[in-house]
Design a protein around this nucleic acid. Structure first.
Lengths: 234, 234
DNA sequence: CACGCTCAGCAGACTAGACAACCTGGTGCG
DNA sequence: CGCACCAGGTTGTCTAGTCTGCTGAGCGTG
């Protein structure tokens, strides 16, 4: 039995959710009157429960017909890092650390990480390959206070996996992207001709209220097209 | 006066929304009982209105205290077109139509617009300026069935405004972005040196279930950095 | 002055109805 | 056979309350 102290509309909501998850899209949910009978509550209470599921996108109401299981909506893609992104594209992601050390935050990095200049940050520079071929150079700056022992504990392949295990997976990010030509150093690391077109990508990633990562990446334009989804619904 | 036929909870909701937008976070909204008095409706109706604003994130309830203006949550930015984007950046957006005609959809455009090859589409090519200086060349393809009389009715400055007035503002979009060098034609239109770095941006914009716009744009990399927010909350 | 009590005012949860708008399917008439 | 109409079930909207739990302010007491 459900807890008698639980809110009634929550009881009804979770009952319907259980009934409905796994059902095919378009199959009918119990009618409001049925649920009124079943739970012995007022219809307003049932409606409150159903409203929540409709807002959630699990159910769909059709006036005069009933309430039905909605077909799963297109959902905002979660924020991914390089490793996940390449895996999604069916490529093997590898990284070669060029630099990993504790530094004092400069003015730009300090502002982006919401720190004060001179605070300790982790600077991690990697050459990242996909299927063995250079894809990008990434400079990541991390707030050392949020990641105690990060440099000592052996660098992970996927930064975002590592953040996730510390409960710091980014929930929000702002990216800026523009086009440029590769510098001499970049072109030799990326194994492309000097002055080749490259995509410069900056990210500021936030988990809850904390800025966890600031990064600047340079991608080979011949191998990489950035893809983003905007808006939460369809 | 608000329309008497309008739903009461909608009237109350919009009344409170107007009162509240612009107020400082933390300032109190009218109490439910006040609104009951003011509108002469039942409290359930007022609660329904307030509930909507609370789930929207505009208001915040504090039990035993009252209802207050929530501090604005970081929200997924809405999908904007060129004109809105440039206005946001404080620049004057202008467009010069290079081509606007009815065409038969080729294979790529047909697939992207969810049509069959040979269906009528509107092809609209514009040179777009910001503060008088060329910024990008945009080729937009629109589903003619959704926009009857579009070519005849005088082209708007902002495509997205025009879509909005027809109830077709994009609710979801997928963008892809990469870097390249300008072709000869592009460089002369954009008034840059040949082989300059450019940002190529493709968009597929969906409103509800309907694909309303497919576009390909070429931006001057020296003037434009794409900026996107990812994730819905903070 | 500091503490605790009471009380008014607030939102939270819920009830038991009412009528309207809407869709579907069946019935009966032309 | 085809169409109009109606009945019944559904959601949509709304009313007029009750009871509960929480908060803050004011007041009195030690």
């Amino acid at each position: 039995m459900t807890d008698g102290r639980a809110l009634k509309h929550v009881q009804v909501r979770e009952y319907v959710r259980n009934l409905v998850t796994g059902s095919a899209p378009g199959s009918p949910a119990p009618s409001e009157r049925e649920l009124v009978q079943h739970f012995g509550v007022a219809r307003m209470t049932v409606r409150q429960a159903m409203d929540a599921l409709v807002v959630e996108g699990l159910l769909e109401r059709i006036p005069g017909r009933g309430t039905f299981v909605a077909r799963p909506r297109r959902t905002a893609s979660r924020i991914t890092g390089y490793t996940e992104e390449m895996t999604r594209r069916g490529m093997l992601a590898e990284s070669q650390t060029l630099l990993a050390r504790r530094e004092q935050a400069g003015p730009g990095v300090a502002r982006a990480l919401a720190l004060t200049e001179g605070d300790a940050v982790i600077h991690w520079r990697r050459l990242r390959r996909a299927d063995g071929v250079p894809m990008c150079i990434e400079d990541a700056y991390l707030n050392e206070v949020l990641l105690p022992g990060f440099l000592q504990s052996g660098m992970p392949t996927s930064l975002y996996d590592s953040l996730e295990s510390r409960g710091l997976r980014p929930t929000w990010a702002e990216d800026s992207v523009n086009a440029d030509k590769a510098t001499g150093e970049e072109s030799s690391l990326l194994e492309v001709d000097p002055m080749s077109a490259v995509l410069r990508h900056s990210r500021r990633a936030v988990s809850g209220e904390k800025v966890v990562e600031v990064s600047r990446s340079v991608y080979r334009a011949d191998r990489y097209t950035l893809w983003v989804q905007l808006g939460q619904d369809g």
